[in-house]
Computed example of a mutant assay.
Amino acid sequence: MTKNYRVEGMTCEHCSNAVVEEVSTVPGAQGVDVDLDKGVVTVSGHGFTDDAVSTAIEEAGYKVVD
C-alpha cells in the first residue's frame, strides 16, 4: 500500500528529515519519501493508518492538509 499526504510548512532538508524520522516510527510504514517542491509525503508499507501518519507528521511540527 502506498499513500500520499499533502503537508503544509515543509521548506528545507531539515523539514524533510524531521518528517521522515517521525513517520518511519509508525507501525507498518516501511518507506517514507518527501517531495519538498510539491509538499507531499509518500508512505509505503502495510498496516499503517492515516491517523498514525498524521500524528507523526504533527509530532515533527507540520500539518497534513486535505
Rank of each mutant, 00 (worst) to 15 (best):
V43G: 08
V32K: 06
G39Q: 05
E22M: 05
E8W: 15
V43F: 07
V65K: 14
N17K: 05
D51P: 09
G45L: 00
V20D: 03
T25K: 12
D66K: 12
Q30S: 08
E22T: 02
E13L: 07
S44A: 04
V19H: 00
M10R: 01
V53P: 14
V19L: 01
S16Y: 01
G47L: 13
V23T: 00
V26M: 00
V7N: 13
L36H: 01
G31Y: 10
A56L: 09
I57A: 10
E21M: 07
V32H: 00
E13P: 07
T49H: 14
G28P: 06
V26Q: 02
A56F: 15
H14N: 12
V20G: 02
G45I: 03
V7I: 13
E8Q: 15
G45C: 09
C12P: 00
G61D: 05
H46Q: 11
P27C: 04
D37L: 01
A56S: 06
V7Q: 10
R6W: 01
G45A: 06
K3G: 00
E21G: 10
E22I: 03
T49W: 15
A18E: 04
V34N: 00
T49L: 14
E59Y: 12
D66C: 02
T55V: 14
N4E: 12
V34Q: 02
V43I: 15
G47T: 15
G45N: 13
V43C: 10
Q30F: 07
S44D: 13
V23P: 06
V34R: 01
D50Q: 13
V40D: 11
E22L: 02
T42G: 15
V40P: 11
V41T: 11
R6S: 11
R6A: 08
V20T: 08
D37R: 06
E22Y: 02
V34I: 08
H14W: 03
A52G: 09
V20A: 01
E13W: 03
V43E: 10
P27H: 02
Y62M: 05
S44C: 08
Y62N: 09
V43P: 11
V26C: 02
E59H: 15
T25W: 07
G47M: 12
A29R: 03
G9W: 10
V65G: 09
A56T: 06
T25H: 11
